[in-house]
Design a protein around this nucleic acid. Structure first.
Lengths: 362, 362
DNA sequence: GTGAAAGCGCTAACAG
DNA sequence: CTGTTAGCGCTTTCAC
């Protein structure tokens, strides 16, 4: 049996020489009686190895509890099997759901996920893009609801790292996004079809515009639906607010407290806002949907509890899809290349917060 | 000027030779007219380099847009500057807040965070512990509200990877946890001090027991507070439920609908449950706190909106602390070694959901 | 089908 | 203070 051909014991590096240390590829090779090259081939499935050899290598690896060192492997191959995910919020339902979907899809492909939360603002973002993401630690990045600057984008792309965006078009990059105009239109049409004519809208403030003009697009859809049936838009029926329950609560109070023209329905740009609106109506002694119908967008985890009608989007699916698209780009087996932008599904879910207005009932 | 001493161009590995490729340490060395060793020292701050040399190295690096390859660095040093975080949920406020705190603290120390969500159940957990975490990709791991098995723990510890737990004692490991018994006791005492004698408790179902017996401990605190003032525990005033708004809603309906003994106060084991209880009371036409006082634990992001009195815990801080403790263990400069378990802060926050019971008013 | 050997990019003795 | 050099653990030609 050939002695270990490794050069005399090194003194450098941590080498993890304590007990419990990890065995390396050489140990497996020795135990299996083959070369490290063969171990590598056998374990990675690349290259030809006889069935018999493979079996003994696998057995040896198992016996030693061998796991490849991803660093060594990455250094040799240039690929890390790790994806960077940049996200603007961690504690908001929508974002954490996208993250959840992406994480589980990546894990199932054997990929790790390295997380960068850009919520803090400040230098954080710059440091993430100029240092962290460039350390060659990730093979690609998923940007969630973040409009990357040309600089950030070319930095990544220039290094050959694919980028996929969730939430809006990024120039020259694969993106997944929902058609906000259509979604808002659908929600408004639902109200219209019930017979409502005086429909208010709670939309986002300008602060949220950076996220791909989501507030504006939803407002456009709302207005479009109204105009399509000949109703002119009444600016008095619009309120801007934060995308939160509290924001929706305050906005709805304004709308419903208007003595001149109280809307019979409210379309809120998000479910959290819509839930706030439901709570506001209740506090004012108004019945939902008896006195006012309310609809949102999202299908938030609380929406079912509140009986909120909504247009569902599926954030977890969005995360999952983003991961799958990346896998395709990274492993160009079958060129399933779709278009640059993939439209995301949505679906009207009618619950108990919307009904015909009293005026339209017999 | 010495020619590049690198051996003749290799043909192996991907080497990223396309345009936009990353320059390596040799390129910086050449440009600065020094050796790679000096570049390494200058950029890492370890070892002595003259101010002048350092400046020129930094300039060269900047000019070339050089960023170290973390893989190469890790391979050579044995440390990755990457922390693994295992977490049972991503979309629940508490967990994502802890994660947020940990992420931002790690980032500020120059560490990456690799995320493993164990929510899916199934083989996921095994594969994470047996493969992902052992690939030598992380220097340490933070376990959030997860009771690691002895096997999982020794696997990690045996490889010399520190582990810190948030949420409960893990054998032989640094842990951060809140004293659930005391927290529950404090909440109950608040109700007691207001004059309530008939205090119900909404606690967790057995499913949640695995998380360090949190439901049981909170129940013990509740019962302890009662007994301390001579009130015997009434099992009829206990309801088990999910830790959700919906769960709390259902449980509160049961409690408040009891025709024989309607409690004047409810202590819920979490704010979400408490919010559900508030909603249930309202739906039954009961005034909070007029007819029933309600208190929770957490200081959830929605609690302020609902005027919920609560005992705050600070999840973001918990995440941050976990990260800091890890940094201490990883960089044993100043031996600030505290005890194995660190008690976490909590604080009673009185809002508008608790008041004296009617029976106690004049 | 398998082994030898070079090399991925960086760091850490060691000498000077 | 700085350069030389060996080597971290793995993958991949290239030759057999």
């Amino acid at each position: 049996m050939p002695a270990r051909s490794r050069k005399a014991g090194g003194t450098i590096g941590s080498a993890l020489s304590r007990e419990g240390a990890m065995s390396d590829i050489q140990a497996v090779a020795d135990l299996a009686g083959v070369s490290t090259a063969t171990v590598s081939r056998a374990l990675s499935g690349k290259g030809n190895v006889s069935e018999k050899t493979r079996a003994s290598v696998v057995a040896a690896a198992k016996q030693l509890g061998y796991v490849v060192s991803s660093n060594a492997s990455s250094l040799a191959t240039g690929r890390t099997r790790n994806i960077g995910v940049v996200i603007p919020f961690l504690t908001k339902w929508f974002y954490s759901s996208v993250l959840e979907g992406a994480e589980s899809a990546l894990l199932s492909h054997g990929y790790d996920l390295t997380l960068y939360n850009l919520g803090g603002g400040g230098d954080e973002r710059r440091s993430v893009f100029e240092h962290f993401l460039l350390r060659k630690r990730v093979d690609a990045v998923i940007a969630i609801s973040l409009e990357l600057t040309p600089r950030e984008l070319t930095g990544l792309l220039g290094m050959g790292k694919p980028v996929v965006g969730v939430g809006g078009p990024l120039p020259g990059v694969r993106t997944l996004s929902i058609d906000d105009v259509e979604v808002a239109q659908l929600a408004t049409e639902h109200l219209l079809s019930l017979g409502h004519r005086s429909i208010a809208h709670i939309g986002g403030t300008k602060d949220y515009e950076r996220d791909f003009h989501l507030p504006t697009n939803r407002r456009i859809g709302y207005e479009g639906a109204l105009e399509a049936v000949g109703i002119s838009v009444n600016p008095g029926l619009f309120q801007a607010a934060d995308f939160t329950i509290e924001g929706g609560y305050g906005a709805a109070k304004q709308l419903l407290g208007n003595p001149r023209e109280r809307p019979t329905a409210i379309f809120a740009a998000s479910d959290e806002m819509a839930i706030g609106a439901i709570l506001a109506a209740r506090d004012m002694g108004l019945d939902v949907p008896g006195d006012v119908s309310i609809i949102g967008i999202d299908d938030h985890e609380l929406s079912d509890f509140f009986g909120l009608s909504t247009v569902a989007q599926f954030p977890e699916l969005q995360g999952r899809l983003a991961a799958e698209i990346l896998m395709e780009q990274l492993h160009p087996d079958k060129r399933t290349r779709g278009s640059l932008n993939t439209a995301l599904p949505y679906e009207l879910i009618v619950r108990s917060s919307t009904a015909r207005p009293k005026s339209a009932r017999q």
